[in-house]
Design a protein around this nucleic acid. Structure first.
Length: 269
DNA sequence: CTTTAAACCTGGTCGC
DNA sequence: TGCGACCAGGTTTAAA
């Protein structure tokens, strides 16, 4: 489920219920995530106040009083509140007791992680190589083109590289290229400045709209005892092989670096 | 240095 | 109903 907009939606849903509150305790059911959960995880978080919940790319950063947690949702992860402790049968790996509820970390496929971090989170190995935030002023056409210089991969593959720009996954790579009218196979280094500007704008546009769509479906994040349904944003190309595009073309599915890519051969050049 | 393929996991779907 | 093959929103690593 989680690309940048989903992670941002989780952040906005969770933050109001934990910021300023103290983590009373934690239960770890499964340590074997992408990175093993710290032996002393419970000890690390117990009694610490949550100062802030930040996002960097697809990572969530729990800024604690004198420490931090860096979390990633992988392919199948999520955070949500529950009145019950984590249930290992449904891959609820961690539960943190805070503000009268359990903040549950669930990740079926275990591609995600939660690591304890002393010192500046942005300097942590997981975050330090990340490129600019796509929604920040630092990300624009000129910067994108500079990052693409010399790259001989398909443009879509380059977009999914977090070192170029943080948080763009398979869905939004496809969607933003469609909005910008650019073929995913375009050689990254061949992208003109004009098209780079168009693409940067398309990325910002689609991410903003997805975040807005996510926020609108969540009434009270703390109430449901299970993961929120996120949102059903209308993809224009993703997952729509064979479906007519708005331009009249037919959406095509190809494979790039082992990942499905969807695009419209008619309006993407 | 860059680029690609494989690896890490579970679960759902599809064809036979 | 069962079984194997394939697919899935991510990232790291080892190899080329």
């Amino acid at each position: 489920m989680p690309e940048l907009p989903e992670v941002e939606t989780v952040r906005r849903g969770v933050a109001p219920h934990i910021v300023g509150h103290i983590i009373e305790d934690a239960i770890v059911r499964e340590r074997r995530l992408r990175l093993p959960v710290d032996e002393d995880f419970c000890k690390y978080v117990r009694g610490r106040r949550v100062i802030e919940l930040r996002r960097r790319g697809k990572y969530l950063i729990f800024v604690l009083d004198g420490g931090a947690l860096i979390a990633h949702l992988g392919m199948s992860g999520g955070f949500y509140f529950s009145s019950s402790p984590p249930d290992r049968k449904v891959h609820e790996h961690i539960g943190m007791q805070i503000n009268g509820q359990f903040l549950i970390y669930k990740d079926t496929r275990r591609f995600g992680c939660i690591v304890c971090c002393d010192g500046a989170p942005d300097s942590h190995a997981l975050l330090k190589k990340l490129g600019p935030e796509p929604l920040s002023a630092a990300f624009h056409g000129t910067a994108l083109r500079a990052g693409l210089r010399g790259r001989s991969t398909p443009l879509k593959t380059a977009l999914m590289d977090g070192a170029l720009v943080a948080g763009i996954g398979n869905i939004y790579a496809a969607e933003s290229l469609h909005i910008a009218g650019i073929r995913p196979q375009t050689l990254a280094r061949r992208l003109s400045l004009v098209r780079a500007e168009k693409l940067a704008a398309a990325i910002k546009d689609v991410l903003r709209r997805a975040i807005r769509a996510g926020g609108s479906t969540i009434r009270d994040f703390a109430h449901p005892d299970n993961a929120p349904g996120y949102f059903q944003m209308q993809w224009k190309v993703y997952g729509r092989e064979g479906v007519p595009c708005a331009c009249g073309g037919v959406i095509k599915k190809i494979k790039q670096n082992g990942r499905a890519t969807y695009y419209c051969p008619r309006c993407q050049k």
